[in-house]
């Protein structure tokens, strides 16, 4: 439990941290599109190299990023099995009674897993290296043009930033409540079904109660300070693109173009 790192912001001062959040979000979107272009193995090698380069520059240990995958291993295994058994194309490799495994099944599955891996890696890098506040500021700016067609950009950004702000708090709270209940003899790992249910209830009820209380307090605090969601407001911090942001965007777009070229001409 102490090792939940899934996208938690890591306060460092690296070139990646200093980039404009809008540039990071846009670059990530471009890269996500690039991942979905079927550019074969060469394409994946290019993408993996590019992403590894970013990780290297960010100074975050590779181990830490890999750990973010642990909760997803189960899902990946499930996907693997379903996929391997359902695709029926290409050369027949294994044939034991009703289990038939084809060559294409293996390749397809590998593709999917690599894609998932790269996608999660990208989003994890984004959230690990961007302050939650910057992230929401970026989202608000990017949604700005859609205000005219009725998208509540500010409210969405505020909601996201509150949610992001409270994730670590809730994790901390969860650990604390689990520890208190362990001291009272609850075993969260083993036990019969009935004991398991009690264990979960003993965690979830206080967690909800604390979270609701927190939400209430936060709402009061915001109102007490005169917060009105749709008020006209100016900003203390304004975002400006500088050269490194353009470099990032151009880099991402070049990679996307390279993927398209690979997909078309190979």
């Amino acid at each position: 439990m102490n090792n939940i790192v899934f996208g938690k912001y890591i306060p460092l001062d690296t070139p990646i941290h200093r980039l404009d959040p809008r540039a990071k979000i846009l670059a990530m979107l471009v890269m996500l599109v690039a991942i979905f272009i079927p550019a074969g193995w060469t394409g994946y090698v290019v993408l993996a190299l590019a992403i590894s380069f970013v990780v290297k520059v960010s100074k975050i240990k590779f181990k830490v990023i890999i750990r973010a995958f642990r909760p997803l291993i189960f899902m990946m295994c499930f996907l693997l099995v379903v996929n391997i058994l359902s695709v029926k194309q290409g050369q027949l490799l294994v044939d034991i009674g009703f289990v038939k495994i084809y060559a294409d099944a293996i390749f397809n599955t590998l593709y999917i897993i690599i894609r998932l891996f790269l996608m999660i890696m990208l989003t994890t890098i984004l959230t690990m290296m961007t302050k939650p506040l910057d992230l929401t500021l970026g989202i608000e700016y990017l949604l700005g043009p859609f205000k005219r067609i009725g998208v509540p950009a500010h409210e969405i950004a505020m909601m996201i930033s509150i949610a992001l702000r409270f994730i670590p708090t809730i994790i901390e709270e969860t650990i604390r409540i689990m520890n208190s209940q362990k001291s009272r003899g609850v075993d969260f790992e083993e036990g019969k079904l009935k004991e398991k249910i009690t264990a979960v209830v003993s965690l979830v009820v206080p967690l909800f109660s604390v979270s609701l209380q927190r939400a209430d307090e936060l709402a009061n605090a915001m109102e007490a300070r005169g917060y009105v969601p749709d008020a006209q407001r100016t900003r203390y911090r304004r975002l400006h693109y500088v050269r490194r942001d353009y470099i990032l965007l151009v880099g991402a777009i070049l990679i996307l173009l390279a993927m398209i070229a690979l997909a078309l001409f190979l």
């Binding site: 709270e173 604390r176 520890n179 208190s180 209830v201 003993s202 009820v205 206080p206 109660s209 604390v210």
Partner: peptide, 11 residues
Amino acid sequence: LVFQFSEYQLF
């Protein structure tokens, strides 16, 4: 062990 914020363990 009685925790620092033990009031949150009641359920």
